[in-house]
Each structure stands twice: as C-alpha cells, then as structure tokens.
Design a protein around this nucleic acid. Structure first.
Lengths: 187, 187
DNA sequence: ATTAATTTGTGACAAATGTCACACATTAAA
DNA sequence: TTTAATGTGTGACATTTGTCACAAATTAAT
C-alpha cells in the first residue's frame, strides 16, 4: 500500500521508492483541531500544506467585516496562501480548519531545495501551478457567466461531499451570495 | 537598443546576446488588423502570442448569446487560451484584435522544445505561470469582495490606458456588469 | 460628404439579491 | 442534562442590477 502522498504525486510523475522517501524527508506532519488556524492575515505563508485528512477554508474579511471564502481544502488537496508563499510577502488571508485535520507540510526553503535537487519535482509543481491556474480561470468564467443558482448547482455536482461537511453559510460565501439568498435558491 | 521581447524576458531572467537570439529563433512574427481573430472557439490553441503592439480581447459567449470578456491584452502581455494551450484541448474561447496588432508567437511544439533546451526558459515560464495565477486569484478576490463600482474604479486606477483604447461596453463585460449599469456608475 | 454601423446615455420597469428581524433546529460546551 | 453557541429558513422591505426601448453622439465605410 503506497503512501497517499506518493499516490497523489504519481498521478503526475512516476517515482522510485528512493525518490519518494527523499521527497518525504522534506515534509513534516502535523495535526490540527477544528477551529484551529494554520495561517493568519499578516503572516508570511512559509509552508504549503497537503491535506491527508480533514477540511479547511481559506478566507478573508472585507472592510465591512464580511467573510469571503476563497478556497476549501479537502483530502489530497494542497492549501496555502499561494501569493504569500510564492512572493514570501505578508498574507491577506486566513486559513482555518473546519474539521480536525491531519496535514503534511513543506516549508518554502525545503521546497526550493527540493526543486533544485530534483528536477522531477520542479516539473510536478510547474504542472500543479498550471492546473491551479486553469481552475481559477474557470472559476472566473463561472462567476461571469453563471447565475448564483447555476453556480450553486455546478458546485453541488462537482463536490457533493462538500455539502455534507461544510455549513451552507460557508458555501454561500464561496459562491459570493448571502446565506439567505442561497437558502432560497432551492425553492 | 534591446529588442522589446528581450527587455520583457530580462525582467525575470538575464540573457546573453546568444541566448536571446536562440530564444527568438523559436518565435515567428505576424500582423493582424482590427477585428481579425487569432483563436476561435473549437480550435486548439497551438500558439502563445506576445503582444508587441496593439490590443486584443479573449472572450466567450454564454447560452443566451451574451459576450463575456476574460482578458484584455496589450503591449508586453502574453495572450492565448491558457487551458487549451496547456492541455492541447479544444478551446472554449475566442481571441480577437480590437486594434491593429503586431504579434510574436511561439508554437506549442517550439515552446516545449525551448523549455527542454534551455532551463532558464522553463524557469521563466514557471514564474510567469505563478504570477498569472496570482493575478487570477486577485481577480476572484475582487469579484467576491468589491461592488461593481469599486471594481470599475480599481480597473480605472490600474489600467487607465485601457479606457482610452477600449469601448466601455467591453469594460462592462470584463467587470461582469451590463453596459447600462456601468454607464450609470459614474453618477 | 453621405450613409451605415457602433457606442453611449437614460428612462421605466422587472428581477435578483442584500439586509434586518425573528423563530426554530442542530450542535457543542459545561 | 442543561445551557450556550451556531446554523438554517423565511417574511418584509430596500437596494442593486438587468432588460428593453429609444435617441443622440461618435466612428467607420462607401
């Protein structure tokens, strides 16, 4: 039984046992409980997390104090503030656990080291970055062309599990509508 | 006087004369007139364009036939359908010139070749990809947290030139509001 | 110069969405 | 088990935005 992180990476590049062990040696493990945070506004995101188990949200507050959800994270997803991590600049966002979580993380330094030591991993992350960008582009497309109701239905279709794990008011925030509007979309 | 493409690339990585000539040999030049297209829905984006001069839009139509603008392109920007180019899949979008344009382009094959032949260019495009992703993330942030009026003012602030070159109805489409609403935002 | 096409602004009204208030259900904490 | 906190649905109403219609202004084409 392969390590789930290895399975995840091997969806993109094949690895020998030694290569995977070498990669894994650059990661650390941590567990967090529901409501605990892994990144706070103003900090520099010096770690990128791979979610072994659990569910998280990345979010920020606007001037009026309203919460907006940028991303959810579940098993096999990566999560960090990408902008802060890449630029090593102060983060505008927060990341909290919405369930108890088991996480693997790699620090910025270790990731830099690993990409230099192992060209395969540079390719892995380049590909991840490409696909991440495509996903964001499609979210913008959807925000432009789809109504709230359509966005709701598309999300429900694509991530049915999310709806059993995450309060609807967070879903509303992710979709960019008020919780009352979301509540009325079903009818 | 350095070639403008060289200046552009050297904002990220330094090049020798030979290196730049080598890079340039992978590109071709083309000119297009206003209203001409460089990519149509259903085609595979097999080229990535660097805009030497002119202005373009990438856009798509929703079911009701409404046009939505995904991106504008101006001097020193790159433009293609990123998803189609990366996956070499059928494009959902169109790209048209909204002014006469001078363009340099690199084909998918040449770009693959060049990244393999020259690791510097792999790093260049990886960085481009990262920053492109950050820009998209910030656009989503803005769509979630800012009102139409705020988005309008932010765009005006960031790209004042755009407003002298591009009809306002296209700006409206980019911002995700009707042209009538945009027209009323000033008051 | 004339004609045609495109762009822009504005009024009137409909539709969608947000806000506030409150009741009730569900979950977490003591 | 009791209490507190959180989440959800719904009514009433205000606000925002979209749609349709039309006229004026601007730009492009002949």
């Amino acid at each position: 039984m392969k390590h789930p992180l290895r399975q995840h990476i091997e969806e993109i590049i094949k690895l020998t046992n030694e290569e995977f062990e070498f990669i894994l040696s650059h990661f650390e493990t941590t567990t967090k409980r529901k409501h605990q945070y892994i990144l706070q506004e103003g900090e520099i995101a010096d770690k990128e997390y791979w979610i072994a188990k659990g569910c998280l949200k990345s979010y920020f507050f606007d001037e009026s104090g309203k919460e907006h959800i940028l991303q959810f994270g579940m098993e096999n997803w990566w999560i960090t503030d990408y902008e802060s991590f890449v630029k090593q600049s102060k983060s505008k966002i927060n990341i909290d656990c919405i369930e108890n979580c088991e996480l693997l993380y790699i620090t910025y330094e270790n990731r830099e080291k690993l990409t230099k030591e192992m060209h395969k991993m540079e390719r892995f992350w380049a590909k991840k970055s490409k696909f991440g960008r495509i996903a964001l582009q499609n979210r913008i497309l959807s925000l432009l062309k789809n109504s709230s109701k359509e966005r709701y239905e598309l999300l429900l279709e694509q991530y049915p599990k999310l709806f059993q794990r995450v309060p609807k008011k967070l879903i509303a925030s992710y979709l960019g509508v008020s919780r009352e509007t979301l509540s009325r979309l079903n009818s």
